[in-house]
């Protein structure tokens, strides 16, 4: 691989990064090639010693996505960060995807339960409309009580979702830096 091919492959794998940052990264590697050539190495030798441009690109992208999800934690950004970190290697597939699916499952279950409780009076109403004449006061009161509990669950889930997202992003960040640079203490 020569310099042009190396930089091209690196650039291709950095497509998710902002333009400025991408240019900055490419400049770093260009500088590396320039100095290496001055010292009498060939482009091929330098490219080999640098390693795979795709792997370098993956590391930089993952680091960027996690950073972004940290500043603006939208569902989309979080998903992207998760995928980027998973892409770093098989190791991450296991230790990132597993907890991620489990957490999403727990959150989804919580929201579903809360939501179902909240709409339960409507279900009673609907059931009475369909089977006219089966109305029981017991159903009505229980459903109203459930609705109240449901509201609490939904409020609780709102904060739980926020907290879990934040916690998981920290885990991702920790994970990305583990793969890239060993354990760090914040």
């Amino acid at each position: 691989m020569n310099k042009k091919q190396f930089l091209q492959q690196l650039d291709d794998s950095l497509q998710k990064l902002p333009h400025d940052e991408r240019r900055d990264i490419l400049q770093d590697y260009e500088e590396y090639f320039t100095i290496g050539l001055e010292e009498g190495k060939t482009e091929e030798e330098i490219a080999v010693s640098l390693g795979s441009p795709r792997q370098i690109g993956k590391e930089l992208s993952a680091s960027h996505q996690v950073e972004k999800a940290h500043t603006t934690a939208t569902a989309r950004n979080v998903m992207r960060a998760v995928w980027a970190v998973i892409g770093l290697g098989f190791f991450n597939l296991v230790i990132v995807l597993g907890p991620f699916i489990a957490l999403v499952g727990v959150l989804a279950a919580g929201w579903a339960a809360g939501g179902a409780f909240v709409v339960s009076p409507l279900l009673v109403l609907f059931s009475n409309l369909v089977n006219w004449g089966t109305f029981q006061w017991f159903d009505a009161f229980v459903s109203i009580a459930l609705c109240g509990i449901g509201l609490f669950i939904v409020i609780g889930m709102f904060f739980a979702t926020k907290a879990i997202t934040k916690g998981f992003l920290r885990y991702l960040k920790f994970n990305a830096s583990l793969v890239k640079g060993g354990l760090r203490h914040d």
């Binding site: 770093d28 590697y29 640098l50 390693g51 795979s52 370098i56 930089l60």
Partner: peptide, 8 residues
């Protein structure tokens, strides 16, 4: 792997 120094 020399390329991994720059991301660091």
């Amino acid at each position: 792997s020399e390329g991994s120094v720059y991301p660091l």
